[in-house]
Design a protein around this nucleic acid. Structure first.
Length: 420
DNA sequence: TCTGGGGTCCTAGGACCC
DNA sequence: TCTGGGGTCCTAGGACCC
């Protein structure tokens, strides 16, 4: 059996930990640039705030209903996510982290009473240890566990734990599950399914496998079998990372090339740190730019440029010139760019590569380590590559309602100035 | 006026090979 | 003039997820 453990309204729940006055009130968390709604409290959902809606479209509702608005604080959410995941793994060792607020767990040889007890134990331990409320659904496949989780979360009589293990109940539940609530069936295919008179999960399971594959490819077929209780989507505790990226949309579009370079170099710095933390080296790098796709009057331009590195690396001093040449390829003056990003892929384990580092590489590495320590102590603006202007990104990103980094930056919370 | 970010997987089509 | 078939690898783009 698989369990899907999911934090309830995760970002909002994180904000509430440190602002308890927000409990029982409508609260939303916004994406970067205070652009879209990415988390809602139950109260905000009841008021009709849709997921993903641009913030400016609900300004009136926010004012009318006195909804509390938070800018996103990913340092806080990331830290709490790690704590939650640790507690879950400590209770159920076989864990696959699926997203910042969700993980699958595997439990073998347990009856429904056991599962119920285990589920309740995880809930209590996570709540006590972090203050974050979670829900758990158990079922024979991941897709069914998703549905069980949905029931656990939405139907209060189950107290956050729901087990889907007998055929009769499963059929009833599938009938009540609209097709657009099924994991793996997105906007595009929902339209198509409705056209074929498939309105709920049970309707889908009544077609033939051949028909499903013809119309919805092997992806649809996996979902189909999973709903029937046949495992198709593997459980993988240590799925390797395949790519690491960093990108931002800007509040103000940018056309200046050196500004774009400053920003992409800052992204490259972050990506390198991430590679080093994970013990990975990248073999490919891609840089991309995007104009504002919502502005129909403006010429659109979404260039990408990618290159295979001669030697895999996690080193900024090696990546910087590559990034520069990629930007040279993409850049065209006269376009107003709204977004930029970098993506490294074709990753491999650092393994035995290190002994072959040249003296130059070692020097660059130790300087960057030193710089990182420096930046940790005195702030991001204390150490950076001279090739970039560290003020650019700050000035084009808006975050009006951000809360403090309560769990990861004591200096900020206690307003301590670092001393030499 | 104002529209996110970080991922994974699959597929179609082109290049290339024998 | 007439020009096959099967396979692999790569990549861009789409669909989906939270």
């Amino acid at each position: 059996m698989y369990g899907l453990v999911d934090c309830n309204n995760f970002y909002v729940s994180c904000e509430r930990l440190f602002r308890p006055e927000l409990i029982n009130r409508p609260v939303i968390v916004l994406s970067n640039n205070d652009g879209c709604v990415i988390s809602r409290s139950n109260e905000a959902k009841k008021l009709g705030v849709p997921m993903g809606i641009p913030a400016f479209q609900i300004r009136q509702l926010v004012e009318q209903e006195n909804i509390t608005v938070c800018s996103s604080n990913h340092a806080l959410y990331g830290d709490l996510s790690r704590r939650v995941m640790c507690i879950i793994k400590d209770t159920i060792p076989r864990q696959e982290i699926y997203s910042i607020d969700e993980c699958f767990v595997q439990v073998n040889n347990h009856g429904p009473e056991d599962l119920s007890r285990i589920g309740e134990e995880v809930r209590q331990r996570v709540l006590k240890g972090t203050g974050i409320p979670i829900s758990i659904g158990f079922a024979p496949t991941k897709t069914l566990a998703k549905i069980a989780n949905h029931i656990a979360k939405k139907q209060p009589q189950y107290n956050g734990v729901f087990i889907l293990d007998d055929a009769k109940t499963t059929r009833e539940i599938l009938k009540q599950t609209p097709i657009d609530d099924v994991w793996g069936v997105g906007r595009r295919n929902v339209k198509k399914m409705i056209k074929y008179n498939i309105f709920n999960a049970d309707d889908l399971t009544r077609r033939s496998a051949r028909w499903i594959q013809e119309n919805f490819t092997v992806v649809g077929l996996d979902t189909y079998y999973e709903l029937k209780g046949v495992e198709c989507i593997e459980f993988d505790e240590n799925a390797p990372t395949k790519s690491i990226g960093r990108s931002r949309s800007f509040g103000e579009p940018i056309s200046n090339k050196s500004d774009l370079y400053s920003i992409i170099l800052e992204f490259a710095e972050i990506v390198c740190t991430s590679l080093q933390k994970k013990g990975l080296l990248a073999n490919r790098v891609m840089v991309y730019l995007k104009t504002n796709r919502h502005n129909k009057k403006q010429p659109q331009y979404f260039p990408t440029a990618e290159v295979e590195l001669g030697e895999p690396t996690d080193d900024l001093s090696e990546l910087a010139p590559v990034v520069k040449s990629l930007l040279d390829k993409l850049y065209s003056p006269g376009h107003l760019f709204k977004k930029a990003g970098i993506l490294v892929s074709d990753l491999e384990d650092v393994g035995g590569r290190m002994p072959f580092a040249s003296e130059e590489q070692k020097k660059a590495r130790s300087m960057q380590q030193l710089g990182k320590q420096f930046a940790e102590k005195y702030g991001k603006s204390a150490f950076f590559m001279a090739a970039r202007d560290p003020s650019i990104l700050e000035t084009v990103i808006r975050k009006d309602q951000k809360t403090q980094n309560y769990t990861t930056n004591l200096q900020e919370v206690l307003r301590i100035k670092p001393t030499m």
